[in-house]
Amino acid sequence: MRPYHKIPIIECGEPLVKIPLELFAVETPHPYEKLGANYGEHSPYYLRESVVKNLIKAQNYLQLLHPGWYIQIFDAYRPVAVQQFMVDYSFAQALQERGLIAANLSPQEKENIWKQVYEIWALPSLNINTPPPHSTGSAVDITLVDDGGKVVNMGSPIDEMSERSHPDYYVNSHEKYHQFRQLLLDIMLKAGFQRNPKEWWHFSFGDQMWAWLCNQSNPDHPVTARYGRWESQLV
């Protein structure tokens, strides 16, 4: 369990709705579908209704600071099956990068690699009390695109399994990378989101991680999660 899993979920029943992609930049084809992830009848470009509204607010804040810049949506809603696919894919990639074969790993070696995978990826849990953030429809992975249509260099790619993914990794070096990460944080905080402490690109509103982070910064006014795992049909 992660610390935020202790936060109770009081599901509000808000629908999952389509993100108006014309207001944002989008990576095409979708990065996980390109790898073979099957979303089935679902789409990765859906979020809970209030999350979409807040994401639009963040885009508007960005435009005020940097006209012509856009939030680029990398990933949003993610069924648990896709979460499982990406966890397995990341484990296989880690083996390939090290020239290792799963069958030849010692228990300790295997545990070390899984630990690295789960530094980035949430457990693909089917337990209703511990849903992966993206499976609630309240988490979104994003970056920035400048007024020339170029993806802003944040110092590391989304989903990289290294310390460079930590939001403040460049706080004492590569000032530009840190400034861009801070810009992304500022516009998202202003729109009500919270950032994953270990991933510069991951933001959420209304899930357990969001509530846990809100409570860390404002313990006198605790909140609960309003979104659990999405199980209904898309609207």
Score class of each variant (00 low, 15 high):
His221Ile: 09
Arg164Phe: 10
Trp114Val: 00
Arg226Gly: 06
Gln216Thr: 03
Gly149Thr: 08
Val17Arg: 09
Ser50Met: 11
Ser125Glu: 02
Glu199Cys: 14
Ser138His: 04
Pro133Met: 07
Trp201Ser: 11
Asn196Arg: 00
His66Phe: 14
Lys18Ile: 02
Pro44Cys: 09
Gly192Ile: 03
Glu163Tyr: 10
Gln194Ala: 10
Leu123Lys: 12
Trp69Lys: 00
Lys115Gly: 08
Lys198Thr: 04
Leu126Asp: 15
Phe91Pro: 03
Ile71Asn: 02
Lys6Thr: 15
His134Cys: 11
Tyr227Thr: 05
Ala25Ser: 15
Arg78Leu: 05
Glu22Asn: 14
Leu213Ile: 12
Val87Trp: 02
Leu16Gly: 01
Arg229Cys: 15
His178Tyr: 15
Gly36Trp: 09
Val117Cys: 07
Asp186Ile: 13
Arg229Lys: 09
His166Phe: 11
Gly99Ile: 06
Leu189Val: 08
Ser125Met: 02
Glu49Trp: 08
Asp159Cys: 09
Tyr39Arg: 08
Pro131Cys: 05
Gln84Cys: 07
Trp210Met: 02
Ala94Arg: 10
Pro219Phe: 13
Val52Ser: 03
Ala191Cys: 04
Ile158Phe: 05
Val80Asp: 08
Pro157Trp: 00
Thr130Leu: 00
Pro20Leu: 11
Phe180Val: 08
Pro133Arg: 04
Phe74Cys: 04
Pro197Ile: 13
Pro67Asn: 06
Leu213Ser: 03
Asn172Gly: 11
Gln72Glu: 14
Pro31Cys: 04
Leu62His: 06
Glu14Asp: 10
Arg98Asp: 01
Val152Phe: 07
Ile19Val: 10
Ile120Lys: 05
Ala76Ile: 06
Met161Cys: 10
Glu49Cys: 03
Leu16Gln: 03
Leu185Asn: 02
Met188Tyr: 05
Val117Arg: 11
Phe91Cys: 04
Pro44Phe: 06
Thr224Asp: 12
Ala102Ile: 07
Lys6Leu: 11
Asn60Val: 11
Ala139His: 00
Ala103Phe: 11
Gly228Cys: 08
Leu55His: 05
Tyr170Trp: 14
Gly149Gln: 12
Thr136Trp: 02
Pro157Glu: 01
Leu144Gln: 01
Gly206Leu: 03
Lys110Ser: 11
Leu64Ala: 13
Pro132Met: 05
Gly36Gln: 08
Ile10His: 14
Arg164Gly: 00
Pro197His: 10
Ser106Asn: 09
Ile73Tyr: 05
Lys53Met: 06
Gln63Phe: 14
Leu184Asp: 00
His42Lys: 12
Gln233His: 15
Ala94Ser: 14
Ser106Trp: 09
Asn60Leu: 14
Val223Pro: 04
His174Ala: 07
Gln72Asn: 13
Gln216Ile: 07
Leu100Gln: 08
Pro132His: 01
Val223Asp: 02
Phe205Ser: 01
Asn215Pro: 00
Phe193Ile: 08
Ala37Thr: 03
Tyr170Glu: 01
Gln59Asn: 02
Phe205Cys: 02
Ala76Arg: 02
His221Glu: 08
Pro197Arg: 10
Cys12Lys: 12
Ser138Lys: 03
Asp207Ser: 08
His5Cys: 11
Trp69Glu: 04
His202Gln: 06
Arg164Thr: 09
Ser165Glu: 06
Glu49Pro: 00
Val80Ser: 10
Cys214His: 12
Arg181Thr: 03
Asn104Asp: 15
